[in-house]
Amino acid sequence: MKKHLTLLATAALTASPLMAQDLTVTSFGGAYGAAQMEHMIQPYMDASGVNVLFEDYGGGIAEMKAQVEAGNILWDVVDIEVIDLERACAEGYLEVIDQSMLPAGDDGVAAADDFIPDALANECGVGNIVWSVVFAVNTDNGPGPQNIADFFDVDAFPGNRGLRKRPQVNMEWALIADGVEPEDVYGVLSTEEGQARAFAKLDTIKEDIVWYDSWSQAPVLLNDGGATMVQSANGRIFAAIQDDGAPFEIVWDSHVYDLDVWAIMKGTENVDLAMEFIQSATMTVPLSGMQDVAYGPTRRSAQALLSDDVKANLPTAHLDEGLKADGIFWADYGESLGEKFNEWLLQ
């Protein structure tokens, strides 16, 4: 029997050699991950012959930080929200990217002019999508909330609220719901009083919040009745409506729009391959493919490839109702507000 086990182990080891995955790309999974797989990863694998291991994570910088500080770099390329990018770059978790190596758009316009300015604003990332944090309701539950103040009004709109378990966006929404003008939000949030005010507003719905860790859970919660309204990346809700016919509705009021970028983990051995992947994934056609999940492209040349019915659902069609996520603010305050947020959660 022992002999059999040894044989079995040898067989398992040789029959399927522990093939080294050539490149590990980490993103957010779900409908967004599926779109990236189809338009960015698979075409790259087909063209280059490189094997990509496509990982999911829940966002934030903790996992990158752990990898860099312990010196175990497990990822190569990571899709990161700009709200976290400034911090990850300033704290040395990401490689600086030579943006001059990016190819021109399909219409021949040089990358520096083809990309929208925000997409190349940080030296550690290359813009990938324009997206937004919105909240969505399940229309099966009757007339739902129309604005962010309604979201915080548990008397008028009872039911659970699904929120992502981190301070980002939640603090902004709390202040807007409490009457702070969107343009003043980050100024107010820089003060102790402003932070206390945001927590006090969150306290009013604390009992009704269902916390989730990953964007993929938002449409699930809304679908199975775990929450009657959820915070979500707009594309997840769009995909649920479009693909599964889910009875969801996006509320654009006070949405917090942002970019996602591709970035390279500091210290990875595959820097060159990672750069090659980013060059491929941020070309005009792959970027335009993100319209599957209603995320806007970061290249102007990709705008032409968008279908008309998607355009109305892109965050860029609703900019006047929204607030731009401030990555610099969160680079400075992410740590201290994160600690306060966690202590608040445990109280």
Binding site: L18, A20, Q21, T24, T26, G29, G30, L53, E55, D56, G58, N72, L74, W75, D213, S214, S216, Q217, V220
Partner: peptide, 20 residues
């Protein structure tokens, strides 16, 4: 474990956390 060493329970764990 890194992404290359994912096991069945690990895959189930992230499945339960992220997308049921």
């Amino acid at each position: 474990a890194g992404p290359e060493q994912r096991t069945i329970p690990r895959q189930m764990f992230s499945g339960l956390r992220e997308q049921i």
